[in-house]
Amino acid sequence: MEQNLTPQQLWDCALRLLSRRDHGRRELARKLRQRGFEPALIEQALERLEQQHWLEEERFVAVQVRQHVLKKHGPLRIRAELQRKGIASADIERALEEAAADWFALAEHCYRARFTPAGRLDVKERARRMRYLQARGFGPEHIRHALESDPE
């Protein structure tokens, strides 16, 4: 059953989505396509939203990075999540730099929140703890720092 959706309905839908939270351009376009709006109308609406500063990729990326840092996610996970949402690599790198997060301290904090100091770790337990930090998005140097902060 073909729906005849108007530009006003598209505009209202886009504003409703943006009123809940910021969206990236690609993410918002995908949601509007899923609701059955025509691609040409979507493109016009996105241009208008950007002109009125209701849709700002830079703001969206900064908010996403900040939220991930608060969740104790590392730079690798943040980068992967934003790439999945269609954000350009240059925008991601800029936002990570501007966040000025201390990834070493964050990895250590994340590690200490999850694990109690255990002294000397056997290989299996050390690997388990490393996998935990890897899954949170920390790189090898951050993981090494966090594990070495554990008093042995």
Rank of each mutant, 00 (worst) to 15 (best):
Q134F: 13
R21T: 15
I143R: 05
E108L: 12
F115W: 13
I143Y: 13
R112E: 11
R20G: 13
R30C: 08
A105K: 15
H142M: 10
V69R: 14
E57I: 01
P151T: 12
E98R: 12
R20H: 14
Y132N: 02
G119E: 00
I143A: 03
L18F: 12
E141I: 07
V65S: 00
F104A: 14
E27N: 06
V63N: 13
L15C: 10
I87C: 02
D91R: 09
K72F: 12
E125V: 13
R129Q: 13
A40I: 08
L70G: 12
L55P: 09
H53Y: 09
E43Y: 06
M1Y: 12
L18Y: 08
E56K: 11
Y111K: 05
W11I: 04
E98K: 10
D22N: 11
W103F: 02
L49M: 07
Q134S: 10
L82N: 05
A62N: 06
R126T: 11
T6R: 12
H145E: 08
R26A: 08
L49T: 02
H109N: 09
A62D: 01
K124P: 07
S149N: 11
H142E: 15
N4H: 10
A80W: 01
Q9A: 05
D150G: 07
V123F: 11
D150S: 08
Q83G: 10
M1K: 13
N4K: 09
E47I: 10
R114N: 05
D122V: 07
F115P: 01
P117W: 02
H109T: 11
Q52K: 12
E50V: 07
L147S: 07
K71A: 15
H109P: 02
V123W: 06
A80P: 04
L147D: 01
R33P: 04
E57G: 03
A88F: 09
F104E: 14
Q67A: 13
G74W: 01
K124W: 11
R112P: 09
P140W: 15
A29E: 12
H109D: 15
A146N: 04
F37S: 03
E38C: 00
V69D: 09
A45L: 11
R16P: 02
E56D: 13
A107F: 07
T6E: 09
C13H: 08
R25D: 03
R120N: 05
P7M: 02
H73T: 04
R112T: 12
R136K: 11
Q8C: 03
F37K: 04
F60Y: 15
R84G: 08
A45K: 02
L18G: 04
M1H: 11
E93D: 14
L82R: 06
A146Y: 04
R136Q: 15
R112S: 11
I78D: 00
A107Q: 00
H142L: 02
A80T: 06
H109V: 10
Q3E: 00
F37M: 06
K85V: 01
A29C: 08
A14Q: 03
L32A: 03
R144S: 02
S149F: 07
V63A: 14
Q34G: 07
F138S: 04
A135I: 07
L18K: 02
A95Q: 00
L106G: 00
R144H: 10
Q44N: 09
R136L: 14
A118L: 12
H109M: 14
R79Q: 04
R16H: 13
Q52E: 15
